[in-house]
Design a protein around this nucleic acid. Structure first.
Lengths: 209, 209
DNA sequence: GTCTATAACGTGATAGAC
DNA sequence: GTCTATCACGTTATAGAC
Protein backbone atom coordinates (compact mmCIF):
# COMPACT_ATOMS: atom_id res chain seq x y z
CA UNK A 1 0.00 0.00 0.00
CA UNK A 2 2.74 2.42 0.96
CA UNK A 3 5.49 3.19 3.44
CA UNK A 4 7.60 0.10 3.88
CA UNK A 5 9.38 0.51 7.14
CA UNK A 6 12.61 -1.41 7.69
CA UNK A 7 11.69 -2.11 11.29
CA UNK A 8 8.86 -1.49 13.74
CA UNK A 9 11.01 1.11 15.41
CA UNK A 10 8.45 3.85 15.62
CA UNK A 11 4.80 3.14 16.31
CA UNK A 12 3.61 6.59 15.38
CA UNK A 13 4.15 6.49 11.67
CA UNK A 14 1.70 8.43 9.60
CA UNK A 15 0.06 5.25 8.39
CA UNK A 16 -0.54 4.07 11.93
CA UNK A 17 -1.77 7.44 13.10
CA UNK A 18 -4.40 7.36 10.39
CA UNK A 19 -5.42 3.79 11.12
CA UNK A 20 -5.73 4.42 14.83
CA UNK A 21 -7.79 7.53 14.27
CA UNK A 22 -9.97 5.68 11.76
CA UNK A 23 -10.61 2.89 14.24
CA UNK A 24 -11.83 5.33 16.87
CA UNK A 25 -14.09 7.31 14.56
CA UNK A 26 -15.51 4.32 12.69
CA UNK A 27 -16.21 2.50 15.94
CA UNK A 28 -18.07 5.48 17.34
CA UNK A 29 -20.06 6.57 14.32
CA UNK A 30 -20.14 3.74 11.83
CA UNK A 31 -19.24 3.87 8.16
CA UNK A 32 -21.97 6.09 6.77
CA UNK A 33 -21.82 8.78 9.45
CA UNK A 34 -18.03 9.02 9.33
CA UNK A 35 -16.44 11.62 7.09
CA UNK A 36 -12.90 11.13 5.93
CA UNK A 37 -12.27 14.67 7.14
CA UNK A 38 -13.13 13.54 10.68
CA UNK A 39 -10.49 10.85 10.49
CA UNK A 40 -7.86 13.14 9.01
CA UNK A 41 -8.49 15.73 11.69
CA UNK A 42 -8.40 13.15 14.48
CA UNK A 43 -5.14 11.83 13.09
CA UNK A 44 -3.69 15.31 12.81
CA UNK A 45 -2.86 14.91 9.15
CA UNK A 46 -4.10 16.17 5.83
CA UNK A 47 -7.06 14.64 4.07
CA UNK A 48 -5.03 13.82 0.96
CA UNK A 49 -2.72 11.62 2.99
CA UNK A 50 -5.57 9.33 3.90
CA UNK A 51 -6.17 8.53 0.26
CA UNK A 52 -2.46 8.31 -0.37
CA UNK A 53 -2.07 5.56 2.20
CA UNK A 54 -5.37 3.71 1.92
CA UNK A 55 -6.74 4.65 -1.52
CA UNK A 56 -10.35 5.03 -0.36
CA UNK A 57 -12.65 5.36 2.61
CA UNK A 58 -14.06 1.90 1.94
CA UNK A 59 -10.63 0.25 1.81
CA UNK A 60 -9.67 1.83 5.11
CA UNK A 61 -12.99 0.79 6.60
CA UNK A 62 -12.60 -2.82 5.47
CA UNK A 63 -9.24 -2.95 7.15
CA UNK A 64 -10.64 -1.70 10.45
CA UNK A 65 -13.60 -4.04 10.22
CA UNK A 66 -11.40 -7.06 9.61
CA UNK A 67 -9.22 -6.23 12.59
CA UNK A 68 -12.28 -5.69 14.78
CA UNK A 69 -13.81 -9.00 13.79
CA UNK A 70 -10.55 -10.75 14.54
CA UNK A 71 -10.27 -9.06 17.89
CA UNK A 72 -13.77 -10.20 18.70
CA UNK A 73 -13.27 -13.84 17.74
CA UNK A 74 -9.58 -14.66 18.03
CA UNK A 75 -9.33 -13.44 21.58
CA UNK A 76 -11.45 -16.37 22.65
CA UNK A 77 -11.26 -19.09 20.03
CA UNK A 78 -8.13 -20.54 21.59
CA UNK A 79 -9.91 -20.72 24.94
CA UNK A 80 -12.86 -22.44 23.32
CA UNK A 81 -10.68 -25.04 21.69
CA UNK A 82 -8.21 -25.82 24.44
CA UNK A 83 -8.61 -29.57 24.87
CA UNK A 84 -6.90 -29.67 28.24
CA UNK A 85 -9.27 -27.57 30.30
CA UNK A 86 -12.67 -28.33 31.76
CA UNK A 87 -15.97 -26.83 30.69
CA UNK A 88 -16.12 -24.93 33.97
CA UNK A 89 -12.68 -23.49 33.51
CA UNK A 90 -13.34 -22.39 29.95
CA UNK A 91 -16.48 -20.61 31.05
CA UNK A 92 -14.62 -18.60 33.66
CA UNK A 93 -11.64 -17.69 31.51
CA UNK A 94 -13.94 -16.70 28.70
CA UNK A 95 -15.94 -14.29 30.81
CA UNK A 96 -12.82 -12.71 32.23
CA UNK A 97 -11.17 -12.28 28.85
CA UNK A 98 -14.20 -11.01 27.03
CA UNK A 99 -15.15 -8.51 29.69
CA UNK A 100 -11.59 -7.23 29.84
CA UNK A 101 -11.46 -6.90 26.07
CA UNK A 102 -14.82 -5.11 25.97
CA UNK A 103 -13.86 -2.81 28.79
CA UNK A 104 -10.92 -1.70 26.70
CA UNK A 105 -12.82 -1.61 23.39
CA UNK A 106 -16.46 -1.11 24.33
CA UNK A 107 -17.57 0.10 20.91
CA UNK A 108 -16.59 -3.01 18.97
CA UNK A 109 -19.80 -5.05 19.38
CA UNK A 110 -22.24 -2.34 18.37
CA UNK A 111 -19.91 -1.36 15.54
CA UNK A 112 -19.89 -4.90 14.17
CA UNK A 113 -23.59 -5.51 14.67
CA UNK A 114 -24.58 -2.21 13.07
CA UNK A 115 -22.52 -2.79 9.96
CA UNK A 116 -23.58 -6.42 9.84
CA UNK A 117 -27.15 -5.32 9.45
CA UNK A 118 -26.38 -3.77 6.06
CA UNK A 119 -23.82 -6.19 4.61
CA UNK A 120 -24.53 -9.50 6.37
CA UNK A 121 -23.23 -12.13 4.01
CA UNK A 122 -20.02 -10.52 2.92
CA UNK A 123 -18.80 -10.09 6.46
CA UNK A 124 -20.04 -13.17 8.25
CA UNK A 125 -18.17 -15.48 5.91
CA UNK A 126 -14.92 -13.78 6.80
CA UNK A 127 -15.03 -14.78 10.42
CA UNK A 128 -15.19 -18.53 10.76
CA UNK A 129 -17.72 -18.07 13.47
CA UNK A 130 -19.25 -21.50 13.20
CA UNK A 131 -15.87 -23.14 13.60
CA UNK A 132 -15.00 -20.88 16.49
CA UNK A 133 -18.23 -21.29 18.39
CA UNK A 134 -20.66 -24.08 17.59
CA UNK A 135 -18.03 -26.59 16.48
CA UNK A 136 -15.64 -25.77 19.29
CA UNK A 137 -14.35 -28.14 21.92
CA UNK A 138 -16.30 -26.06 24.42
CA UNK A 139 -19.59 -26.94 22.78
CA UNK A 140 -18.51 -30.55 22.47
CA UNK A 141 -18.02 -30.65 26.23
CA UNK A 142 -21.36 -28.95 26.66
CA UNK A 143 -23.16 -31.56 24.57
CA UNK A 144 -21.49 -34.40 26.43
CA UNK A 145 -22.75 -33.06 29.73
CA UNK A 146 -26.23 -32.83 28.28
CA UNK A 147 -26.07 -36.45 27.13
CA UNK A 148 -24.79 -37.69 30.47
CA UNK A 149 -27.71 -35.96 32.13
CA UNK A 150 -25.55 -33.68 34.21
CA UNK A 151 -27.28 -30.62 32.82
CA UNK A 152 -30.68 -30.10 31.30
CA UNK A 153 -31.25 -30.41 27.59
CA UNK A 154 -30.94 -26.93 26.20
CA UNK A 155 -30.03 -26.47 22.57
CA UNK A 156 -26.38 -25.43 22.28
CA UNK A 157 -27.47 -22.42 20.25
CA UNK A 158 -29.71 -21.19 23.06
CA UNK A 159 -26.85 -21.60 25.47
CA UNK A 160 -24.43 -19.69 23.24
CA UNK A 161 -26.90 -16.82 22.83
CA UNK A 162 -27.23 -16.60 26.59
CA UNK A 163 -23.49 -16.72 27.16
CA UNK A 164 -22.57 -14.09 24.60
CA UNK A 165 -25.64 -12.01 25.33
CA UNK A 166 -24.98 -11.80 29.06
CA UNK A 167 -21.43 -10.69 28.35
CA UNK A 168 -21.97 -8.38 25.41
CA UNK A 169 -25.39 -6.81 25.86
CA UNK A 170 -24.52 -4.44 28.74
CA UNK A 171 -21.80 -2.91 26.57
CA UNK A 172 -24.10 -2.57 23.58
CA UNK A 173 -26.69 -0.85 25.76
CA UNK A 174 -24.22 1.05 27.93
CA UNK A 175 -25.73 4.52 27.36
CA UNK A 176 -29.07 3.25 28.66
CA UNK A 177 -27.48 1.31 31.52
CA UNK A 178 -25.48 4.31 32.64
CA UNK A 179 -28.52 6.52 32.39
CA UNK A 180 -30.95 4.41 34.40
CA UNK A 181 -28.32 3.59 37.01
CA UNK A 182 -26.88 7.11 37.22
CA UNK A 183 -23.47 5.57 36.69
CA UNK A 184 -20.17 7.22 35.90
CA UNK A 185 -17.82 5.43 33.53
CA UNK A 186 -15.90 4.09 36.54
CA UNK A 187 -19.01 2.74 38.18
CA UNK A 188 -20.07 1.11 34.94
CA UNK A 189 -16.70 -0.62 34.63
CA UNK A 190 -17.02 -1.83 38.19
CA UNK A 191 -20.44 -3.29 37.41
CA UNK A 192 -18.97 -5.13 34.45
CA UNK A 193 -16.09 -6.46 36.54
CA UNK A 194 -18.60 -7.94 38.97
CA UNK A 195 -20.14 -9.85 36.11
CA UNK A 196 -16.90 -11.73 35.49
CA UNK A 197 -17.68 -13.95 38.47
CA UNK A 198 -21.47 -13.74 38.30
CA UNK A 199 -22.08 -14.85 34.72
CA UNK A 200 -20.47 -18.30 35.09
CA UNK A 201 -22.52 -18.90 38.24
CA UNK A 202 -25.69 -17.75 36.52
CA UNK A 203 -25.08 -19.91 33.48
CA UNK A 204 -24.51 -22.96 35.64
CA UNK A 205 -27.72 -22.30 37.49
CA UNK A 206 -29.58 -21.93 34.22
CA UNK A 207 -28.26 -25.30 33.11
CA UNK A 208 -29.83 -27.02 36.08
CA UNK A 209 -33.40 -26.05 35.30
CA UNK B 1 -48.03 19.05 9.26
CA UNK B 2 -50.18 18.75 6.18
CA UNK B 3 -53.20 16.96 4.75
CA UNK B 4 -55.93 17.16 7.36
CA UNK B 5 -58.18 14.26 6.77
CA UNK B 6 -61.71 14.39 8.03
CA UNK B 7 -61.60 10.78 9.10
CA UNK B 8 -59.17 7.88 9.21
CA UNK B 9 -61.07 6.34 6.35
CA UNK B 10 -58.11 5.41 4.24
CA UNK B 11 -54.88 4.16 5.73
CA UNK B 12 -52.91 4.57 2.58
CA UNK B 13 -52.74 8.32 2.41
CA UNK B 14 -49.58 9.71 0.94
CA UNK B 15 -48.42 10.92 4.31
CA UNK B 16 -48.77 7.44 5.79
CA UNK B 17 -47.15 5.77 2.83
CA UNK B 18 -44.10 7.95 3.31
CA UNK B 19 -43.98 7.39 7.06
CA UNK B 20 -44.28 3.64 6.71
CA UNK B 21 -41.57 3.51 4.09
CA UNK B 22 -39.36 5.76 6.20
CA UNK B 23 -39.77 3.47 9.18
CA UNK B 24 -38.65 0.45 7.21
CA UNK B 25 -35.64 2.12 5.62
CA UNK B 26 -34.48 3.98 8.74
CA UNK B 27 -34.80 0.84 10.83
CA UNK B 28 -32.71 -1.12 8.38
CA UNK B 29 -30.00 1.36 7.57
CA UNK B 30 -29.97 4.04 10.24
CA UNK B 31 -30.11 7.79 9.73
CA UNK B 32 -26.76 8.43 8.07
CA UNK B 33 -26.90 5.59 5.55
CA UNK B 34 -30.47 6.37 4.52
CA UNK B 35 -31.06 8.61 1.51
CA UNK B 36 -34.32 10.45 1.21
CA UNK B 37 -34.48 9.08 -2.33
CA UNK B 38 -34.55 5.54 -0.87
CA UNK B 39 -37.57 6.42 1.20
CA UNK B 40 -39.35 8.12 -1.67
CA UNK B 41 -38.78 5.15 -3.91
CA UNK B 42 -39.92 2.67 -1.25
CA UNK B 43 -43.03 4.75 -0.72
CA UNK B 44 -43.70 4.91 -4.44
CA UNK B 45 -43.84 8.69 -4.44
CA UNK B 46 -41.77 11.58 -5.57
CA UNK B 47 -38.87 12.96 -3.58
CA UNK B 48 -40.40 16.43 -3.42
CA UNK B 49 -43.43 15.07 -1.62
CA UNK B 50 -41.32 13.88 1.27
CA UNK B 51 -40.18 17.42 1.95
CA UNK B 52 -43.67 18.73 1.34
CA UNK B 53 -45.10 16.55 4.10
CA UNK B 54 -42.24 16.41 6.58
CA UNK B 55 -40.10 19.45 5.79
CA UNK B 56 -36.76 17.64 6.24
CA UNK B 57 -35.07 14.28 6.58
CA UNK B 58 -34.27 15.00 10.22
CA UNK B 59 -37.87 15.89 11.10
CA UNK B 60 -39.10 12.68 9.54
CA UNK B 61 -36.41 10.71 11.33
CA UNK B 62 -37.26 12.23 14.70
CA UNK B 63 -40.85 11.20 14.21
CA UNK B 64 -39.90 7.61 13.47
CA UNK B 65 -37.46 7.50 16.38
CA UNK B 66 -40.04 8.79 18.83
CA UNK B 67 -42.56 6.19 17.73
CA UNK B 68 -39.93 3.45 17.95
CA UNK B 69 -38.91 4.44 21.46
CA UNK B 70 -42.53 4.46 22.53
CA UNK B 71 -43.13 1.08 21.01
CA UNK B 72 -40.15 -0.25 22.90
CA UNK B 73 -41.11 1.13 26.30
CA UNK B 74 -44.87 1.60 26.37
CA UNK B 75 -45.58 -1.96 25.33
CA UNK B 76 -44.28 -3.11 28.69
CA UNK B 77 -44.46 -0.25 31.17
CA UNK B 78 -48.05 -1.09 32.06
CA UNK B 79 -47.03 -4.67 32.76
CA UNK B 80 -44.18 -3.46 34.96
CA UNK B 81 -46.45 -1.23 36.98
CA UNK B 82 -49.52 -3.40 37.38
CA UNK B 83 -49.94 -3.52 41.16
CA UNK B 84 -52.26 -6.50 41.08
CA UNK B 85 -50.01 -9.15 39.62
CA UNK B 86 -47.18 -11.14 41.14
CA UNK B 87 -43.51 -10.85 40.29
CA UNK B 88 -43.66 -14.24 38.63
CA UNK B 89 -46.61 -13.30 36.50
CA UNK B 90 -45.05 -10.04 35.35
CA UNK B 91 -41.91 -11.86 34.31
CA UNK B 92 -43.86 -14.27 32.12
CA UNK B 93 -46.10 -11.67 30.51
CA UNK B 94 -43.14 -9.43 29.86
CA UNK B 95 -41.20 -12.11 28.00
CA UNK B 96 -44.19 -13.06 25.92
CA UNK B 97 -45.03 -9.49 24.99
CA UNK B 98 -41.49 -8.39 24.25
CA UNK B 99 -40.65 -11.39 22.14
CA UNK B 100 -43.88 -11.00 20.18
CA UNK B 101 -43.18 -7.32 19.63
CA UNK B 102 -39.60 -8.02 18.55
CA UNK B 103 -40.66 -10.82 16.24
CA UNK B 104 -42.87 -8.32 14.46
CA UNK B 105 -40.36 -5.44 14.57
CA UNK B 106 -36.95 -7.09 14.88
CA UNK B 107 -34.98 -4.06 13.74
CA UNK B 108 -36.11 -1.70 16.48
CA UNK B 109 -33.50 -2.50 19.15
CA UNK B 110 -30.43 -2.21 16.93
CA UNK B 111 -31.93 0.90 15.35
CA UNK B 112 -32.35 2.58 18.73
CA UNK B 113 -29.00 1.45 20.11
CA UNK B 114 -27.11 2.54 17.00
CA UNK B 115 -28.56 6.01 16.99
CA UNK B 116 -28.20 6.27 20.74
CA UNK B 117 -24.47 5.89 20.37
CA UNK B 118 -24.26 9.20 18.50
CA UNK B 119 -26.89 11.32 20.30
CA UNK B 120 -27.19 9.77 23.75
CA UNK B 121 -28.47 12.58 25.92
CA UNK B 122 -31.04 14.06 23.63
CA UNK B 123 -32.81 10.79 23.17
CA UNK B 124 -32.56 9.11 26.54
CA UNK B 125 -34.33 11.94 28.28
CA UNK B 126 -37.30 11.50 26.00
CA UNK B 127 -38.08 8.04 27.19
CA UNK B 128 -38.75 8.02 30.90
CA UNK B 129 -36.78 4.87 31.16
CA UNK B 130 -35.88 5.16 34.79
CA UNK B 131 -39.50 5.55 35.76
CA UNK B 132 -40.50 2.69 33.51
CA UNK B 133 -37.86 0.27 34.67
CA UNK B 134 -35.87 0.85 37.83
CA UNK B 135 -38.64 2.65 39.70
CA UNK B 136 -41.34 0.27 38.57
CA UNK B 137 -43.55 -1.86 40.75
CA UNK B 138 -41.80 -4.84 39.24
CA UNK B 139 -38.45 -3.77 40.70
CA UNK B 140 -40.11 -2.95 43.99
CA UNK B 141 -41.35 -6.52 44.19
CA UNK B 142 -37.91 -7.74 43.22
CA UNK B 143 -36.25 -5.77 46.03
CA UNK B 144 -38.75 -7.03 48.57
CA UNK B 145 -37.94 -10.61 47.69
CA UNK B 146 -34.26 -9.87 48.09
CA UNK B 147 -34.88 -8.39 51.54
CA UNK B 148 -37.01 -11.29 52.68
CA UNK B 149 -34.20 -13.63 51.68
CA UNK B 150 -36.26 -15.47 49.08
CA UNK B 151 -33.74 -14.71 46.37
CA UNK B 152 -30.06 -13.89 46.45
CA UNK B 153 -28.83 -10.34 46.69
CA UNK B 154 -28.21 -9.23 43.13
CA UNK B 155 -28.28 -5.57 42.31
CA UNK B 156 -31.53 -4.70 40.54
CA UNK B 157 -29.51 -3.19 37.73
CA UNK B 158 -27.70 -6.47 37.12
CA UNK B 159 -31.01 -8.26 37.07
CA UNK B 160 -32.52 -5.79 34.60
CA UNK B 161 -29.53 -6.12 32.28
CA UNK B 162 -29.94 -9.89 32.31
CA UNK B 163 -33.66 -9.74 31.71
CA UNK B 164 -33.55 -7.29 28.82
CA UNK B 165 -30.34 -8.78 27.44
CA UNK B 166 -31.70 -12.31 27.30
CA UNK B 167 -34.77 -11.07 25.46
CA UNK B 168 -33.23 -8.49 23.14
CA UNK B 169 -29.73 -9.73 22.32
CA UNK B 170 -30.70 -12.59 19.99
CA UNK B 171 -32.62 -10.11 17.83
CA UNK B 172 -29.73 -7.64 17.80
CA UNK B 173 -27.36 -10.40 16.76
CA UNK B 174 -29.81 -12.22 14.52
CA UNK B 175 -27.60 -12.28 11.39
CA UNK B 176 -24.90 -14.07 13.37
CA UNK B 177 -27.35 -16.38 15.10
CA UNK B 178 -28.95 -17.36 11.82
CA UNK B 179 -25.56 -17.89 10.26
CA UNK B 180 -24.02 -20.13 12.90
CA UNK B 181 -27.23 -22.11 13.34
CA UNK B 182 -28.00 -22.36 9.60
CA UNK B 183 -31.46 -21.09 10.40
CA UNK B 184 -34.17 -19.86 8.08
CA UNK B 185 -36.27 -16.93 9.23
CA UNK B 186 -38.99 -19.38 10.33
CA UNK B 187 -36.57 -21.46 12.36
CA UNK B 188 -35.20 -18.34 13.99
CA UNK B 189 -38.70 -17.25 14.99
CA UNK B 190 -39.34 -20.69 16.43
CA UNK B 191 -36.15 -20.43 18.51
CA UNK B 192 -37.32 -17.08 19.86
CA UNK B 193 -40.75 -18.47 20.68
CA UNK B 194 -39.11 -21.19 22.76
CA UNK B 195 -37.41 -18.49 24.79
CA UNK B 196 -40.75 -17.11 25.96
CA UNK B 197 -41.02 -19.97 28.43
CA UNK B 198 -37.30 -20.53 28.98
CA UNK B 199 -36.20 -17.03 30.00
CA UNK B 200 -38.47 -16.79 33.08
CA UNK B 201 -37.22 -20.18 34.24
CA UNK B 202 -33.63 -19.20 33.67
CA UNK B 203 -33.98 -15.91 35.49
CA UNK B 204 -35.54 -17.63 38.48
CA UNK B 205 -32.69 -20.12 38.56
CA UNK B 206 -30.18 -17.29 38.41
CA UNK B 207 -31.84 -15.65 41.39
CA UNK B 208 -31.25 -18.69 43.53
CA UNK B 209 -27.48 -18.66 43.25
C1' DG C 1 5.71 12.03 1.85
C1' DT C 2 3.03 16.05 2.58
C1' DC C 3 0.51 19.83 1.34
C1' DT C 4 -3.21 23.16 -1.33
C1' DA C 5 -6.54 23.52 -4.67
C1' DT C 6 -10.00 21.59 -7.20
C1' DA C 7 -12.50 18.24 -9.76
C1' DA C 8 -16.38 14.91 -9.74
C1' DC C 9 -20.09 13.28 -7.60
C1' DG C 10 -24.04 12.44 -4.42
C1' DT C 11 -27.56 14.20 -1.57
C1' DG C 12 -31.06 17.32 0.73
C1' DA C 13 -34.04 20.64 -0.37
C1' DT C 14 -36.75 23.97 -3.27
C1' DA C 15 -38.93 26.48 -7.35
C1' DG C 16 -42.44 26.45 -10.26
C1' DA C 17 -45.55 24.20 -13.71
C1' DC C 18 -49.64 21.46 -13.67
C1' DG D 1 -51.22 17.62 -3.86
C1' DT D 2 -48.02 15.96 -7.15
C1' DC D 3 -44.67 16.20 -10.40
C1' DT D 4 -39.95 17.64 -13.12
C1' DA D 5 -36.00 20.21 -13.09
C1' DT D 6 -32.56 22.31 -10.65
C1' DC D 7 -30.00 24.55 -7.03
C1' DA D 8 -26.77 24.53 -3.17
C1' DC D 9 -23.93 22.22 -0.50
C1' DG D 10 -20.96 18.65 1.52
C1' DT D 11 -18.01 14.87 0.65
C1' DT D 12 -14.72 11.71 -1.59
C1' DA D 13 -10.97 11.56 -4.31
C1' DT D 14 -7.22 13.37 -7.26
C1' DA D 15 -3.86 16.60 -9.63
C1' DG D 16 0.09 18.85 -9.13
C1' DA D 17 3.41 21.92 -6.56
C1' DC D 18 6.83 21.45 -3.03
Amino acid sequence: MAGKRTSAKNDTTTELKIKNAARVVFHQKGFAATRTRDIAEAAGINLALLNYYFRSKKKLFDLIMLESLQQFTLSVSDVFNDEKTTFEHKLQVLCRRYIDMLTEHPDIPLFILSELRTNPNELISRIHIKENLLKSHFIKQFSEQVKSGKISAIAPLQFMMNLIGLIVFPFVASPIVKSIGDLSQEEFVKLMQERKALIPKWLNAMLEV
